[in-house]
Structures are given as structure tokens and as C-alpha cells.
């Protein structure tokens, strides 16, 4: 009986551990600094997490489908640069759909390579990280990109606007999170993503078009990246062409923190959002404590390792690994 209870606790920890950690964490920071739970602070954190968060939503699909996407950072730079450049050339109304089209074409290309040609996703997206970076540099001629008339464009609404007092980036992040969460948990497509990631062979043997599902996860990922690029471009109205550099791994960190397994088949949008928020609030909490932004890197490291470790430990029923 004792064993049963112990296992029960282990299971609860494994399933909801990240949520519990999040709540504990929030309480500790709130006790340490009253400012932390002020509405405007919380809204500020979510807003600044929105870009990373939107990308993480897409990558969640890819990871649950059993693959990796290391190209999202470089792709985000691309979409930011492209939309800024086209803004002055063809106007924002056309620039936005054009940017979405181009970004999603890249996503489709990756999806084709990984889904239909069945190439290893780590290497493909690593290659695409480099290739898209090259594409961005070529597009921008190596220069920073700026909108000429920063004051006179409605384009800034996505990154800087507010609707009913709520910052637009938060609305976009929340809206996408809700829609994609429904897609993943409630639709036949979402079910198939879990099946393909959980056991690709069994999915094929059940008549699920594995290649098409994998393709779609990358398409969704690139759509999210385009949204992130839009937010980024609209927020700053100008950008370096390396703006997304390194974000692929931060995004992956958030997804893993949320509990998605790199082997595929597990994870949820809700947990990814929690993962993103934890990263955001750590950064914010540490800043409020007067620590520099880079301290969060170290804390993030420890939290990721601990989170995954506890998850694994709960599943295997013992703390230390059995590796000889």
C-alpha cells in the first residue's frame, strides 16, 4: 500500500510537476518582491515572452510529432527582415501576407525533407538554420533593416498596440495558444500528430499518412514563426538580421520544460505555455531582485535539468540512473 501511494505521488509529480513548480516559484518570488505580482508586471512579462512563446507553440507540434526544429530562430530573423523590407516597398497590407507566404514556403520545404523524404530532422533543420541565415543576409545585403516612416505606419499595432487595454502581443499569443491547443487536443489532426510521434510505425499501420502529418507540423511551426516575426518587426520597426539567433534552443528549452518528450508523442500546448511563462518569469523575477539578465541562463539550466530529471526519475521509479 505504501508503495502504491509512493507511486501515486510519483505519477502526480511526473504529470503535474511543472505546474506545481510554477506555482511554488511564483509564490516564492511574490513573497520576495511585491512588485512581482503587480498586474502591469505580469502583463509585461507575458508580453515580452510572447515572441518566444508563439514560436514555442509551433515547435510543440513538431516535437510531439517526433521531430526537432532548430531552424525557427533563423527563420524568425528571416521573416522579420522580409516584412520590414517589404513594408517600405509594397506597403504593410501586402508585405504581411507576402512574408507569411515566404516563411511558410520555407516551412513547407523543411516539412517536405523531413516528412516525405524522411531525412533526419536534426540535421535538416540544422542545415536550414544555416541556409535561412544565408538567405536573410542575402536579402538584407548584410544591413540592418529599418522602416523609413516609423511614426506614420499602422504596422506598429501588432507589437505595440492595445485592445481594451490588453497589449496586442498578449492577445495574439493567447489566441494562438487557444486555437492551437484545440487543434492539438480536440481535432483528428491533433490525434494523428500524437500517434505519429508516439509510434510512427503503428500510425502507418493504422492508415495515417505519416509524411503528410509531419509536413503539416512544420507548416504550423513556420506559421507560428511568421507570427513571431510579425510581432518582432512591429515592436521594433527595425531589426538586425540576427534577431532570432539562438532562439531555436531557447524555444526548445521552453518546450522541454513544459514536459514534451524529445522522443515524441507527449506534451501539450498548455504545458508549453507554462514552460514559456516560467522562463519569462524567471528572467523577470531575477531582474526585480537586481540580478542581471544572464543570471537567468544559469537558473534556466538548472531548472531544465531538474525538470527532465524528475520526470524521468518518476517514470523509472528511482532517482539515480541505472547507467553502469
Amino acid at each position: 500500500m505504501a508503495e502504491l501511494t509512493k507511486r501515486g505521488i510519483g505519477e502526480v509529480l511526473a504529470k503535474q510537476g511543472i505546474l506545481i513548480a510554477f506555482v511554488v516559484f511564483m509564490i516564492v518570488f511574490a513573497l520576495a518582491n511585491q512588485r512581482f505580482i503587480a498586474i502591469d508586471n505580469i502583463s509585461g512579462v507575458i508580453r515580452s515572452s510572447a515572441i518566444l512563446g508563439v514560436m514555442a507553440l509551433g515547435v510543440t507540434f513538431v516535437v510531439i510529432g517526433g521531430n526537432l526544429d532548430l531552424s525557427v530562430g533563423s527563420m524568425m530573423s528571416f521573416s522579420t527582415i522580409v516584412v520590414l523590407d517589404l513594408h517600405d516597398k509594397i506597403g504593410p497590407t501586402l508585405a504581411i501576407p507576402a512574408m507569411f507566404g515566404l516563411t511558410m514556403a520555407l516551412g513547407a520545404f523543411i516539412g517536405f525533407l523531413v516528412g516525405y523524404l524522411k531525412l533526419n530532422s536534426l540535421i535538416v533543420t540544422l542545415g536550414m538554420l544555416s541556409a535561412i541565415h544565408g538567405l536573410t543576409l542575402t536579402w538584407s545585403g548584410g544591413q540592418n533593416m529599418d522602416i523609413a516612416d516609423k511614426a506614420g505606419t499602422w504596422f506598429s499595432v501588432f507589437g505595440q498596440g492595445r485592445v481594451a487595454g490588453v497589449p496586442v502581443p498578449i492577445l495574439i499569443f493567447a489566441g494562438l495558444a487557444i486555437v492551437l491547443s484545440l487543434v492539438l487536443s480536440k481535432t483528428p489532426f491533433g490525434r494523428k500528430v500524437y500517434a505519429v510521434g508516439g509510434n510512427g510505425k503503428a500510425a502507418t499501420f493504422s492508415g495515417i499518412p505519416r509524411a503528410r502529418i509531419v509536413f503539416m507540423t512544420y507548416l504550423i511551426s513556420s506559421f507560428c514563426v511568421a507570427c513571431a516575426g510579425l510581432l518582432q518587426a512591429s515592436r521594433s520597426l527595425g531589426s538586425q538580421n540576427t534577431v532570432g539567433q539562438g532562439m531555436e534552443l531557447e524555444v526548445l528549452a521552453a518546450v522541454i520544460l513544459g514536459g514534451a518528450s524529445l522522443l515524441g508523442g507527449s506534451g501539450t500546448i498548455f504545458k508549453t505555455v507554462i514552460g514559456v511563462l516560467i522562463l519569462g518569469f524567471i528572467q523577470n523575477g531575477l531582474l526585480l531582485m537586481g540580478l542581471a539578465f544572464y543570471v537567468q541562463y544559469v537558473v534556466t539550466w538548472l531548472i531544465i535539468i531538474l525538470a527532465v530529471w524528475l520526470d524521468i526519475a518518476a517514470k523509472r521509479g528511482r532517482f539515480w540512473s541505472q547507467i553502469a
Binding site: P188, Y194, A195, G198, N199, A202, A203, I208
Partner: peptide
């Protein structure tokens, strides 16, 4: 285990997997 089932999924989802498109 390798080809027939997605072991991490629940019983119902495994059973309805091939026709999930039609059960909407």
C-alpha cells in the same frame, strides 16, 4: 507493440485511430 499500438495512448484513442477523421 511495434506496429499495432501506440503504447503511450489510451485504449479508446488506439481503437478509433484509423477512423478518427469520421468521428467528428
Amino acid at each position: 507493440k511495434g506496429q499495432g499500438l501506440v503504447l503511450g495512448m489510451n485504449c479508446r484513442d488506439n481503437m478509433t485511430l484509423p477512423q478518427v477523421d469520421d468521428l467528428t
